[in-house]
């Protein structure tokens, strides 16, 4: 195996893991606090990408577009909470799933009507578009480093918000005991709306960050949402720490599996068999890992202590 390639793939895995965390953190926050299953979370990720794409063309600068898109998706998340989620809190999970599934159809079709069926590529500003030399033999695209940094900053901001602010304390308290928070005279509805807005902003941010690499496209949200589910299942639903570690784990396994599994297989099987089976196995790898973990730990790796 090539050392340079390995380091680059490692960075790619880290990047995927961080993006997955941005999506999964909103899901796990909402589920942990509200016991609400939001399938439409992936659509916010997609909307983030499209809105950022449009704004990039309007403003001529990706970074400004991103900064303006963030509050827009937060507002979308807020509106989603008020219109769709709130009437469904008292219902069972089946209703959550069906209602938000309907919401996906609506949001995806609206995106289709506004932006058309084809994907939209986002041009990067020159400063982010080049390559950066990390070490003598290792050159990586600057933008990938930017994604990793932006994602880590967002994750750190979320950590600070949840663990070191009064709002975060209420969020954590709300996750373990909703009645108590209400009894303290806190406007719990406003808190819920806020949590949705934060979750939407994080998922939207992930969509904005990936769009310059993959394009903004219609199916992108529906693909990542399942992977984000795998992340929170593996991490333990409702656990922020679990979501973070599981996102990195899943990101690494998926990326490294696709990159190196055929080389690994070639060690102990003929190269034609390896070339045929490696893509199949690596495409399933994260689900197989999920199955394995669930078999031994049905509640995930880091189940939250208080439920």
């Amino acid at each position: 195996m090539d050392y340079t390639l390995f380091v680059i793939q490692l960075l790619n895995g880290l990047q995927l893991g961080i993006l997955l965390f941005l999506v999964a953190s909103g899901l796990t926050l909402v589920f942990g606090i509200l016991d609400f299953v939001n399938l439409a979370h992936g659509s916010v990720y997609m909307l983030g990408a499209f809105i950022c794409a449009s704004l990039t063309f309007a403003l001529g600068n990706f970074v400004y577009a991103l900064l303006i898109s963030l509050p827009i998706v937060a507002v979308i998340g807020y509106g989603f909470e008020r219109l769709i989620a709130r009437p469904l809190y008292e219902r069972d999970h089946l209703d959550h799933v069906l209602g938000t599934f309907g919401a996906i159809l609506v949001m995806d079709t609206l995106a289709h009507m506004i932006w058309g069926p084809a994907g939209i590529a986002i041009p990067l500003p020159a400063a982010l578009d080049g390559q950066t030399q990390l070490a003598p033999d290792i050159v990586v695209p600057t933008f990938r480093l930017a994604i990793i940094s932006a994602g880590l900053i967002a994750a750190a901001g979320l950590y600070w918000l949840v663990n070191h602010t009064r709002t975060g304390m209420l969020i954590r308290a709300g996750a373990s005991n909703r009645t108590m928070v209400t009894a303290l005279g806190i406007d719990i509805q406003a808190l819920f709306s806020f949590v949705f807005a934060i979750g939407a902003a994080l998922a939207g941010l992930a969509g904005m960050l990936i769009a310059p690499i993959t394009e903004a496209s219609l199916g992108m949200g529906n693909n990542i949402i399942i992977t984000a589910f795998v992340v929170i299942i593996v991490g333990g639903i409702g656990s922020m720490k679990g979501a973070f570690l599981a996102a990195l784990l899943i990101g690494m396994i998926d990326t490294l599996g696709r990159a190196f599994l055929d080389d690994i297989f070639k060690i102990f099987m003929s190269s034609s068999v390896a070339e045929n089976s490696a893509p199949a196995i690596s495409s399933m790898s994260i689900y197989l890992i999920m199955a394995l973990i669930l078999f031994f730990r049905p509640q995930g790796l880091f189940p939250p202590k208080l439920r």
Binding site: I84, L98, G99, F101, G102, A103, I104, L105, V106, T109, L110, M113
Partner: peptide, 8 residues
Amino acid sequence: LPFGLLLI
């Protein structure tokens, strides 16, 4: 779109 709205 109408299908999704109907579902909701």
